[in-house]
Nucleic acid binder design. Structure first.
Length: 604
RNA sequence: GGCCCGGUAGUUCAGCUGGUUAGAACGCUAGCCUGUCACGCUAGAGGUCGAGGGUUCAAGUCCCUUCCGGGUCGCCA
C-alpha cells in the first residue's frame, strides 16, 4: 500500500458544469449511440498499453469504460494511465455495442461499453486495505474500521437497500391498515426489570439520569390510552448487555400496538404483514394461517421456545419408562423431579464414529447436562455403555417409544427439565447442522403462544416476568395468580423464523387492579409499585382500552431475509463484540469540563 | 465473569520435534503490452512474527503474564 502524494492530489479536477446523465449499471443496448456522462468509482483498471479498460462502479452496478489513445487523445489517455482503484471519475463518452466475442455475460451491462472521450479525476484514493469484492475474506474488525469502504461492496449495498425496502413496505402496509407512526422519547425514565439501561446524566438535575429506551413499551400503551387506536414506530432501542451475532447494544424494532384486540386479532394482522413482506422480498407466498405451537408443546418437542421446524429429530419423553430402572442417573433424575428425554438421531449409529459420539457428549456438557447417554441400534443388536442397566422389557419399550430402527443412534439426557430441554434442544440443532438438515431455501414461520407469565429467578429468589410486567395473564389462569403463579399462562406470543425469534408481543394489562396485582407478584409492594410505575397505574384510572401489540427485531428480520448470519451485515455502522466502534473509536473519554457539567466523577 | 478458536507482509494464510537470510497467494510499485473483463509477462518494494517477561548457546515455534479479534455459556423483562 502506498499513500497519496502531492502529485496525485494535483490531478484532481473540479466537477465544473458536468452533469451526470446516467447511472453506470443501467446502460444497455437501448443506449447505443448516446453520449453519456458517468460518475463513479474505479472498480478495476486493466491497462493493455495502448488501450485501457476501466470498470466504473456506482450503486447501480458496473460498466466498462474504454480509453483508446486514438479516440480520446493523448492528454485524456495519460490521465487514464494515472488512475488507480477507487479513484472517483467523471467520464464523457459514447455508448457502443461490443463485438460479439468481447461481450461479458457476467455483468448486466456486458453487451455494451462506453468509449471515453473526456475524463476528469474528481478524487484520488489510497490503495484500499481490502478488495471491494462480494466474496471477500477479511476479518470483520478490518471491515468495520473501514466500514465506508465495506459498504461500497455490492453485497453490503444489497443488504442495506433491502432493509430500506422492508421498512418502506412495513410503513405502507401499516398505513393502509389505519396505523399512525408516532415518535416516542429517547430520553426517558429508567425502569426496574429487564435489561441493563444505558444511562444519560442530567445536567439540570444533579445526580439524576435519563435512560435510553429498551423499547417504547410504556409510551405505546399510553398512546392507546390516548385513543390513537393503532400505532407503529420504527424505533431504535438500547440495551446494555453483552453482544452476540444477533444482538447489538442499539437495535431497531418495528413496534406495533392496537386497541380493542385479543391475541388472534394481533396474530391475524401480523400474518398478513409477514405475507406481504415475504412476497415482496423473496417472492414467497406464505400459506396462512401460520402454524402455532404452545410454549409447552415447543419445549417438549424441540427443547426451546424458538424451534427450527425445518427438520424433525424431535424430543421424546421416556421418563415413565425409566422411573424404576437400575441406571441411577436416569432413575435418580426422575426421583428428584426431573425428566429423561431422548432424540432419535436417525441413521447416525452408522454415520457417526465413536469419536463423533464422544464429541456430542462434550457438546451437551456446555449446556449444563452432566452427560449424554447413548444407544446405537445396530443390525446385530444394541451397542451402548448403559444397556446393561435395563431389562429386556424396558429396552424394548424405549426402542418402541423412540421408533428406533437399525442404524439409529438414541441420545438421552436426564436432569431437571430446564437442563434437559436446553441440552437436547441445542443437541438437536447441532445434529441438524452436522446432518445438513437446515434447508436454506426454506422459511418456516411458527407462532409460539401461551408462554408462562412468570418464571422463578433463583438468584433474586422471586418471580420475574417472562415477557414483561405489563403482559396480561390468560383469562382462565387469572385465578392461579395468588395460589400458583408458576402455572399462569400469559397472552404472549413470539413469531419464530427458522429457529430465530424475529418478533414477540402480548395483550397488555389495562386495569390498575391487575397491574398492581402483577407487580405485587413480582415482589413490588403497592407503595413501591406506585413509586416506580405510578404514571401507568394512574393512567389506567382514566379509561384504558384493552390493547396489545408486537415488536419485531427489524435487524433480525432483515438478516433472515438477506440470508446473512449476523445482524452486523444489515446495520450500516454496527459495533464489535465489546460494544465499541473501531471506525469512530467510540466510546471515548470526555473532557473533565463535560463531566463536571453533568456532575459525574469517574473512579475508573 | 467462564470456556473454545485465533493474532506472522496492506489482505488471507503457511511456517514440523526450537536451529542459516521468516515464505506463498492476492494486492501494491516500475517496465512492456490495442480487446481485456480475476488481463498477461518481467522486475521490485513491503515484516519490531500483537505486547511484556522467562527458559535456552539459539524462540515466530516452549513456558508465564497481558492486550486485541471472533464464537459460545452466563446475561439479554
Amino acid at each position: 500500500m502506498y499513500s497519496l502524494d502531492d502529485q496525485e492530489y494535483g490531478m484532481v479536477e473540479l466537477m465544473g458544469n458536468w452533469k451526470r446523465t446516467h447511472m453506470c449499471g443501467v446502460l444497455n443496448l437501448a443506449h447505443i449511440g448516446q453520449e453519456v456522462t458517468l460518475m463513479g468509482w474505479v472498480h478495476r483498471r486493466r491497462d493493455l498499453g495502448g488501450l485501457i479498460f476501466i470498470d466504473l462502479r456506482d450503486r447501480s452496478g458496473i460498466v466498462q469504460v474504454v480509453f483508446n489513445k486514438e479516440r480520446c487523445g493523448e492528454e485524456v489517455f495519460q490521465k487514464a494511465e494515472a488512475v488507480r482503484s477507487e479513484y472517483v471519475l467523471a467520464v464523457k463518452g459514447a455508448v457502443v455495442k461490443r463485438d460479439p466475442d468481447t461481450v461479458n455475460p457476467k455483468i448486466p451491462t456486458g453487451e455494451i461499453e462506453v468509449v471515453a472521450s473526456q475524463l476528469k479525476i474528481l478524487s484520488v484514493s489510497n490503495t484500499p486495505p481490502f478488495s471491494l469484492e462480494d466474496d471477500i475474506n477479511v476479518s470483520e474488525s478490518v471491515r468495520l474500521k473501514y466500514r465506508y469502504l465495506d459498504l461500497r461492496r455490492a453485497e453490503m449495498q444489497r443488504n442495506i437497500i433491502l432493509r430500506h425496502r422492508i421498512t418502506k413496505w412495513v410503513r405502507d402496509f401499516l398505513d393502509s391498515k389505519g396505523f399512525y407512526e408516532i415518535e416516542t422519547p429517547m430520553l426517558t425514565r429508567s425502569t426496574p426489570e429487564g435489561a441493563r439501561d444505558y444511562l444519560v446524566p442530567s445536567r439540570l438535575h444533579p445526580g439524576k439520569f435519563y435512560a435510553l429506551p429498551q423499547s417504547p413499551q410504556l409510551f405505546k400503551q399510553l398512546l392507546m390510552l390516548s385513543g390513537f387506536d393503532r400505532y407503529f414506530q420504527i424505533a431504535r432501542c438500547f440495551r446494555d448487555e453483552d453482544l452476540r451475532a444477533d444482538r447489538q447494544p442499539e437495535f431497531t424494532q418495528i413496534d406495533i400496538e392496537m386497541s380493542f384486540v385479543d391475541v388472534d386479532d394481533v396474530i391475524a394482522l401480523n400474518e398478513e404483514m409477514l405475507a406481504d413482506i415475504f412476497k415482496k422480498a423473496l417472492g414467497i407466498e406464505l400459506s396462512l394461517p401460520l402454524p402455532r405451537l404452545t410454549y409447552k408443546e415447543a419445549m417438549e418437542r424441540y427443547g426451546t421456545d424458538k424451534p427450527d421446524t425445518r427438520f424433525g429429530l424431535e424430543l421424546k419423553d421416556v421418563t415413565d419408562l425409566v422411573r424404576d430402572c437400575e441406571f441411577k442417573v436416569f432413575s435418580g433424575a426422575v426421583a428428584s423431579g426431573g425428566s429423561v428425554r431422548a432424540i432419535n438421531a436417525k441413521g447416525c449409529a452408522v454415520k457417526f464414529s465413536r469419536r463423533e459420539i464422544d464429541s456430542l457428549v462434550d457438546f451437551v456438557k456446555n449446556y449444563g447436562a452432566k452427560g449424554l447417554a447413548w444407544i446405537a441400534v445396530e443390525h446385530d443388536g444394541l451397542k451402548s455403555p448403559i444397556t446393561k442397566f435395563f431389562t429386556e422389557q424396558q429396552l424394548s419399550s424405549i426402542l418402541q417409544r423412540l421408533e428406533a430402527e437399525p442404524g439409529d443412534l438414541l441420545l438421552f439426557v436426564a436432569d431437571k427439565d430446564d437442563v434437559v430441554f436446553q441440552a437436547l434442544g441445542q443437541l438437536r440443532l447441532e445434529l441438524g447442522r452436522r446432518l445438513n438438515l437446515m434447508d436454506k431455501s426454506k422459511y418456516n414461520l411458527v407462532w409460539v403462544t401461551e408462554f408462562p407469565l412468570l418464571e422463578y429467578d433463583e438468584e433474586e429468589k422471586r418471580f420475574v416476568a417472562k415477557h414483561h410486567p405489563f403482559t396480561a395473564p390468560m383469562d382462565e389462569d387469572i385465578q392461579y395468580l395468588d395460589t400458583d403463579p408458576a402455572r399462569v399462562r400469559s397472552k404472549a406470543y413470539d413469531i419464530v423464523l427458522n429457529g430465530v425469534e424475529i418478533g414477540g408481543g402480548s395483550i397488555r394489562i389495562h386495569t390498575t387492579e391487575m397491574q398492581e396485582k402483577m407487580l405485587n407478584v413480582l415482589g413490588f409492594s403497592k407503595e413501591k409499585a406506585w413509586q416506580r410505575f405510578g404514571f401507568l397505574l394512574e393512567a389506567f384510572k382514566y379509561g384504558a382500552p384493552p390493547h396489545g401489540g408486537i415488536a419485531y427485531g427489524l435487524d433480525r428480520l432483515v438478516m433472515m431475509l438477506a440470508g446473512r448470519d449476523t445482524i452486523r451485515d444489515v446495520i450500516a455502522f454496527p459495533k464489535m463484540q465489546n460494544a465499541s466502534d473501531p471506525l469512530t473509536d467510540a466510546p471515548s473519554e470526555v473532557e473533565p469540563k463535560q463531566l463536571k457539567e453533568v456532575h459525574i466523577r469517574v473512579d475508573a
